[in-house]
Amino acid sequence: MLARRIVPCLDVKEGRVVKGIKFVDLKDAGDPVGLAEFYNKEGADELVFLDITASHEKRETMVEVARRTAREVFIPFTVGGGIGTIEEIRNILKAGADKISLNTAAVENTDLIREGARIFGSQCIVIAIDARWNEQMKDWEVYTHGGRKGTGISALTWASRVESFGAGEILLTSMDADGGRDGYDIPLTRAICEKVSIPVIASGGAGKMEDFAHVLTEGKADAALAASVFHYRHFSIREVKEYLKEQGVEVRL
């Protein structure tokens, strides 16, 4: 049986991990490669690096992070954040990343999904969807530009479309739940998972170990992503996976 995946996310700015990570046992808590290795040893099933580098010129640092990670850590990892061209996709994958994730650029240019899937294969192309409930639309709306810009597009419609364009996976972030540590957005996650037949990684809202179980069972997600609960050591990845196993969820331990 296919195991449900637990995926820590690292925010990287100009080659350094940001968002105050509280590690006493790491020589350099800002080094993405060291942290990736730490999470790998702890049982992470894959990793997501989110590049939040603002300046375009410094984006080359992320390629270097991917290159160094691929030499040391032998589990799959995804690089996302600001990728907008086939050339950028190629550079990241060539450096050793397994997948790239597209967000704003995919909405603005759907050909990028199609071309990316055709050239590199669907399994490399993850579409990141940031969604928030819109009371007027009575639907979840897709946001771009790091959650700053509403698009008026229904997240459910968008999910189906990216699947038809050849996306291999969806990384779904609930903006309503994100940062609240009150649990994942189960209705949104479940609605998307029932809509598409590609894997869905749920993101946003993890606070307790129970939250992981909920999103992977009731939410029907294939994987659960979290950042702060792992970075701040609320619990370890291994603890979550042991808990999930007790709950009857198939995990890799």
Partner: peptide, 10 residues
């Protein structure tokens, strides 16, 4: 089934 078969399996 969800396709691709993506992830860790026994």
């Amino acid at each position: 089934l969800k396709v691709p078969h993506m992830g860790w399996n026994r």
